[in-house]
Design a protein around this nucleic acid. Structure first.
Lengths: 187, 187
DNA sequence: CACCTGATGTCAGCCACTGTCATCAAGTAG
DNA sequence: CTACTTGATGACAGTGGCTGACATCAGGTG
């Protein structure tokens, strides 16, 4: 057995989510989170840049996955369809963890600072997707627009998935991409 | 003459922008901003909810303007064209203050916390536009998608306007809406 | 003249976050 | 087996964003 209990990062993530749900984000101090995880405040800040980041640490893996999906898509697809495919893949990954996603989202929507952090994560994701499209030879502004549109669709589909018990995220994403095409077709 | 120098809010806004440009956002303390404006730190926080908000106070007026433009658009227009018209109106308002917009944007892009705040302001704007569309009888998800798409276009056009000396914001917005239609048309 | 109002100042305090140094089990070299 | 190194953690002091509570005081009002 090691000198310390294993998985300090995981213990901190869990303690943080539990406390944010119990008393709310603002009413929870970092010292409390660390205490529940059997660590000190200083150690919390060695794992996470700030009090918000503990809820978003997993987003890096998601981003990597999406970028890979864009890079590996068939050459024949149009940019928006490459993005749609990647977003659907991400949706499938989330599908399995619906209750976890709900708990996390409940914390985020209840606090403006956390919504800000979520938005910048999505903006980073959009920038990464646009970069991956450019790697495939798609020029700007088409690359940026396709990525931004894809993230917009994801946001809306995700929201509907959280709100509605009966719908499947992948199909909501597919449907929302269809809605987007209809909307942007205009008059 | 009043008991105090007039326009405390304006003095704080100006002092903050100047200091953020001179030394950077993080290297500036609220006490310094207040001092330069001839006020105290406590008074700063009576005008602005936090150190970031001082750069975004004007966004409420912009949002109101855009919502009015959506509400007042001709009935015959498709939702995406209503949004496009409103965004163009906003673009025209900014056109006149290009150098100011550049200075402000230089501060924002240099700091992650400020980018977060900008993103949530744009998200609020998107939500307000979607609400204004629903008032016109447009259902979700079309209303939300049109609003999100409009904001995405604005972000990209604004970025190009800041980067490129020679282009006119209104025409960039119009062009980017055209690009979006082409992109979302897909295969 | 007494009173009220509203913008500001003063002060104490919480807590997020950081820099620095100490600690100490486990691995590694000799 | 011993000495040295390493890496995760703790301890502690300090900065600064932000808040609550109360004081101040010029000008308006009755």
């Amino acid at each position: 057995m090691g000198r310390w209990e294993p998985n300090a990062r995981g213990r901190l993530e869990r303690a943080a989510l539990d406390l944010y749900l119990e008393r709310g984000f603002e009413q929870t101090t970092v010292a409390e989170i660390a205490g529940r995880a059997g660590l000190t405040e200083r150690t919390f800040f060695r794992y996470f840049a700030d009090k918000r980041e503990v809820l978003f640490w997993g987003s890096a893996a998601l981003q990597e996955h999406l970028v890979d999906a864009v890079a590996g898509a068939p050459d024949c697809l149009a940019p928006i369809d490459v993005i749609a495919g990647a977003v659907e893949v991400a949706g499938e990954r989330m599908q399995e963890r619906r209750e976890g996603a709900r708990r996390r989202q409940a914390v985020i929507v209840a606090n403006a600072e956390l919504r800000e952090r979520e938005l910048i994560k999505l903006a980073n994701l959009s920038a990464a997707l646009a970069g991956a499209l450019r790697e495939r030879g798609v020029d700007d502004p088409a690359a940026s627009l396709a990525a931004e549109a894809g993230i917009a669709v994801f946001k809306i589909a995700f929201q509907r998935w959280i709100d509605d018990d009966d719908r499947d995220l992948t199909s909501l994403i597919r449907e929302s991409f269809g809605d987007l095409k209809a909307v942007t077709a205009g008059t």
